[in-house]
Computed example of a mutant assay.
Amino acid sequence: MIELPEAITLETGRGGLPVVKVATAAVTGEVYLLGAHVTAWTPAGEAPVLWVSEQSNFLRGTPIRGGVPVCAPWFGPGRHGDKQPAHGWFRISDWELTGAEVVDDEARLTFALTGPGGISAEYRVLLGRSLHLDLSVTAGADPLDLEEATHAYFAVSDIHGVRVDGLAGAHYVDKAPGGASDNVELGPVTFTGETDRVYAHTGPATVIDPDGRHITLSKHGSNNTVVWNPWVDKAAAMGDFGDDEWPGMMCLEAANALDGYVALQPGETHTMQVTYALS
Rank of each mutant, 00 (worst) to 15 (best):
I2D: 00
I2L: 02
E3M: 01
E3T: 05
L4T: 00
E6A: 09
A7E: 10
I8K: 00
T9F: 01
T12Q: 15
G15S: 14
G15V: 14
G16K: 15
L17K: 08
P18N: 10
K21P: 02
A23V: 05
A26W: 04
A26Y: 02
V27R: 08
T28L: 01
V31C: 01
Y32Q: 06
Y32K: 03
L34H: 11
G35S: 04
G35N: 04
H37T: 05
H37A: 07
W41R: 07
W41C: 07
T42F: 10
E46W: 11
A47Q: 15
P48H: 08
W51D: 04
V52D: 01
E54K: 13
E54Y: 00
Q55N: 11
Q55C: 06
S56F: 03
R60G: 05
G61N: 14
T62E: 14
R65F: 12
G66F: 04
P69Y: 03
F75L: 10
P77T: 15
G78M: 11
P85L: 05
G88P: 11
W89D: 13
S93Q: 13
S93L: 01
S93A: 15
W95R: 00
E96S: 01
T98L: 05
G99H: 00
G99P: 01
A100E: 00
E101G: 02
D104A: 13
A107H: 03
R108C: 00
R108K: 12
F111R: 00
P116A: 13
P116G: 07
G118P: 06
S120I: 01
S120D: 02
E122M: 02
R129I: 09
S130I: 07
D134W: 10
D134F: 08
S136M: 07
V137P: 08
V137M: 10
T138E: 07
A141E: 14
D142T: 09
P143Q: 13
L144C: 09
L146T: 11
E148N: 14
T150A: 11
H151Q: 09
H151K: 08
F154V: 06
R163D: 12
R163Y: 06
G166Y: 01
A170W: 03
A170D: 04
Y172I: 05
V173W: 02
S181P: 04
S181W: 12
P188Y: 02
T190I: 10
A200V: 12
T202K: 07
G203W: 02
G203M: 05
A205M: 05
I208K: 11
P210Q: 09
D211Y: 14
D211F: 15
G212K: 14
G212R: 11
R213D: 09
S218T: 15
S218F: 05
G221S: 12
S222G: 09
S222H: 07
N223M: 05
N224D: 07
T225A: 03
V227N: 07
V227F: 07
N229T: 12
N229Y: 01
P230W: 11
V232T: 15
D233V: 10
A235C: 08
A237E: 14
G239M: 11
G242R: 04
D243E: 14
C251Q: 13
C251G: 08
A257I: 06
A257G: 08
V262T: 09
L264V: 12
L264T: 12
G267Y: 09
H270L: 13
T271V: 09
T271C: 10
M272A: 08
V274G: 08
T275A: 07
T275N: 11
S279P: 09
